[in-house]
């Protein structure tokens, strides 16, 4: 078993974290789930996560701010944006600010796993993507 890939998942919808944590663990990710952006930022301040998955539209702190913070603090990390408010302008803004990818809600667990696997490859990790999909995705 290779070293697990550390992932921070931030979404103010608790169900997203509850479902994705085990789903991502299957492909070898160690996921820390946050619902509160402030707490997530505090955690990001002290620890580097290779991959950060964040919602965009949240109260108080915007996902874009999280993206900017991560790009500043851990330039190596890949940030994946997930949002229900997907629009071309928002997508382009996220890409410009350095997001690795941008996924519109609703998405399937496999969609995110595929993107994370891609990000992991870009980081030099190999994830067993097939592990999660017994029927072949």
């Amino acid at each position: 078993m290779p070293e697990p890939l550390e992932v921070l998942l931030l979404d103010d919808e608790p169900i997203v974290g509850r479902r994705l944590k085990p789903a991502l663990a299957k492909i070898g990710c160690a996921v820390e789930v946050f619902e509160n952006p402030e707490k997530a930022l505090a955690r990001l301040q002290e620890k580097e996560f290779k991959i950060v998955v964040t919602d965009i539209r949240m109260d108080d702190i915007d996902g874009m701010q999280v993206l900017e913070f991560v790009r500043e603090r851990w330039p190596e990390s890949k940030v994946i944006m997930i949002t229900g408010y997907a629009m071309m302008s928002l997508a382009r803004e996220a890409m410009e600010k350095g997001a690795f990818d941008f996924i519109a809600k609703p998405f399937k667990p496999d969609d995110l796993r595929r993107v994370i696997a891609k990000a992991a490859r870009a980081l030099g990790y190999t994830l067993d993507f097939e592990a999660a999909a017994p029927e072949g995705g």
Binding site: M88, R92, M95, E96, G98, A99, F102, A104, F107, V115
Partner: peptide, 14 residues
């Protein structure tokens, strides 16, 4: 080459 015009999951889905 500008990042704004890079492909992503969302835009490919569109």
């Amino acid at each position: 080459g500008y990042r704004k015009f890079q492909a992503m999951t969302y835009s490919r889905k569109c």
